[in-house]
Nucleic acid binder design. Structure first.
Length: 573
DNA sequence: GCCGTTTTCGGCCCGACTGTTTTCAGTCG
């Protein structure tokens, strides 16, 4: 069982306990443990083997015993017993908007409703309205919620949501009386997948802004609207909400809505310790008076913290760093000066080598590596050794045209085959300027084999970069089952760089693994894997992921000078 | 169920909105 499966198990337990009506703090403890396992960056099996499960934050005696049972036997008696009382299907009903654990529990206990389809039938027959706390409106709301669930998209990749949020933001900023507006929530924290769009608005006429927001013709359903908060669902299935505040409260409002929840719990604790109460409206002093903050920086300052970049606000140590003045000087997109993984028409890219080179120059880069696929990747029309040698001629021609405007490197994205052999012999790898290795096939092999494939590449001194190491695809395809600790050890030993692939469908390594790689002092590289000139804009998402991993420019090789990159490659053979 | 710079017991962030009530419970973020 991997971390995600453990986390899913504890999330299920939390949901079932909540429906059962267990004290809320017990369910919170299970959720906290699930969250913690997801953000761990190390395989929980490692902790288990060392007998150190309780070192994991939020894991104490009871939960560590459950992890032990799950890892030993793959089963959990506690969960099986719990399911006798509360069927696991009930947890599915929690996905219906505006329906929570109390109501699900009520419907189950009172009229035996176990599934969404049974709930729908009961609502249509008017069987819900007479239950305690229910009425005709609540019944209709549930039917609307079920319908909305079928329309909703769930969490979507950051790359899909970000442009939509920017459009919405533009619309809102253009409204009368709007002074300022910013995205908040997981979108502002640049999480790889995002549930909905949160926007904080500073406005002089707050009602007018809310009115325009909910009356937009693209709105399918108004989920709620009040003096401060309004939320809507668009015909596309996307949901968005805005909080409208007076401009003087914009700082606390933005801080609050950016989250994460756990980060906010910490900031509030600190405020409490100072006799203050931090809310989305203001900081309330011990005498009850309000202090207003228009700027987020000043909110952090007021509770003794340096301003924390949104990408770090996950309660992964950033609060302590902010207290001690130790926050990292995070990498920025403008620090990126080289692209070391892209494709041309020689394989599955859409434009010529020269066009990619010009795009790189327009991005202000000093170095570009052309890394077309190698031959065993049939779908990417990979290059044979002969074709690779022919490609060198075109590279040299391009070099002549470009002069000193760009350092153009001839490389490959070499396939690591299913049997762990590499596509090119060492002689060819040595001849190339740069070697990026990756796998695209047989990613569902068992852990030992798929790990061995990456280790073979890492341990070859001619391989410089491992691209998209886990091969996950957002939103749904999980990465290969890899022993990441072994891979990190080997990469650290060999000095092989690991990629953060900036394509928003990949973002691989993810933030958690990239941070772990930095702990091993492994060099990172943020590449776009561009197949089109426009793809080079993806760098924004890759850098965001690097920021979430606490990366500083010096740890990312494509922030280095052209000379430094050339010299690094030269030393690697 | 977890945790400790007042605590090994007693807390655990805080408020908006809605629909049901007639002062509050449930849901959400």
């Amino acid at each position: 069982m991997n971390n995600k499966e453990l986390a899913d198990t504890f999330t299920l337990i939390a949901n079932l306990l909540e429906i059962k009506g267990e004290v809320i703090y017990k369910t919170l403890a299970y959720r906290k443990a699930a969250e913690s396992l997801t953000n761990l960056g190390r395989d929980a099996n490692e902790y288990w083997k060392d007998g150190k499960l309780t070192d994991i934050p939020g894991v104490g005696k009871a939960i560590s015993e459950k992890i032990d049972e799950l890892l030993s036997s793959g089963k959990l008696e506690y969960l099986e017993k719990l399911q006798d009382e509360v069927p696991a299907e009930l947890a599915e009903m929690l996905k219906i908007p505006d329906l929570g654990p109390k109501k699900v529990g009520l419907f189950y206990k009172e009229i035996g409703v176990k599934s969404i389809s049974e709930l729908k039938a009961a609502a249509e027959k008017g069987k819900l309205r007479d239950l305690a706390g229910m009425g005709p409106k609540s019944e209709t709301k549930i039917l609307d919620g079920i319908e909305s669930l079928s329309r909703r998209t769930g969490r979507a990749p950051l790359g899909d949501m970000w442009p939509k949020a920017q459009e919405l933001l533009k619309k809102i900023r253009a409204l009368d009386g709007v002074v300022d507006a910013e995205v908040a929530g997981s979108l502002r924290r640049m999480k790889a997948s995002v549930g909905d769009i949160d926007i904080i608005v500073a406005a002089t006429d707050r009602d007018l802004v809310s009115k325009h927001f909910v009356e937009d013709p693209e709105v399918a359903r108004v989920l709620g609207t009040g003096g401060i908060k309004s939320s809507v669902e668009y015909h596309s299935g996307l949901t968005a909400q805005i909080w409208v505040h007076e401009p003087a409260r914009f700082g606390t409002a933005l801080q609050y809505a950016t989250g994460s929840k756990d980060h906010n719990v910490r900031t509030r604790e600190i405020a409490q310790g100072m006799g203050l109460s931090l809310t989305d409206q203001a900081i309330i002093q011990s005498d009850g008076s309000e202090k207003l903050y228009a700027k987020e920086e000043d909110v952090y300052k007021a509770i003794g913290l340096d301003w924390v970049a949104p990408e770090l606000r996950e309660d992964r140590g950033e609060i302590q760093a902010a207290q001690e003045g130790n926050l990292p000087k995070l990498i920025e997109t403008k620090n990126i000066r080289a692209e070391l993984h892209c494709h041309s028409t020689w394989s599955d890219g859409k434009v010529s080598i020269l066009e990619m080179a010009e795009t790189a120059i327009n991005h202000g880069y000093h170095t570009l590596a052309i890394t077309d696929h190698s031959f065993s990747l049939g779908i990417g029309s990979g290059l044979s050794i002969e074709r690779l040698q022919e490609q060198r001629i075109e590279i040299d021609e391009a070099r002549e045209k470009l002069g000193d405007k760009l350092q153009l490197l001839h490389g490959t994205e070499m396939e690591i085959k299913a049997d762990a052999s590499l596509d090119f012999p060492d002689k060819i790898l040595e001849w190339l300027d740069i070697v990026v290795a990756s796998l695209h096939v047989s990613m569902r092999q068992e852990r030992a084999q798929v790990t061995k494939r990456l280790l073979t590449a890492i341990n070859n001194p001619h391989v410089d970069i491992i691209a998209h190491p886990t091969n996950r695809l957002l939103p749904d395809r999980e990465g290969s089952d890899l022993d990441m600790e072994q891979i990190f050890s080997a990469a650290a030993e060999m000095g092989t760089a690991l990629e953060i692939n900036s394509n928003p469908k990949r973002l691989d390594l993810d933030d958690v693994l990239a941070r772990r790689a930095l702990e091993f002092e492994i060099p990172l590289v943020v590449n776009t894997d561009a197949h089109l000139p426009e793809h080079m804009d993806f760098i924004f998402y890759g850098v965001a992921t690097a920021r979430r991993a606490w990366a500083e420019p010096k740890s990312v090789i494509n922030t280095w000078t052209a000379k430094q990159i050339k010299s690094w490659l030269g030393k690697r053979g």
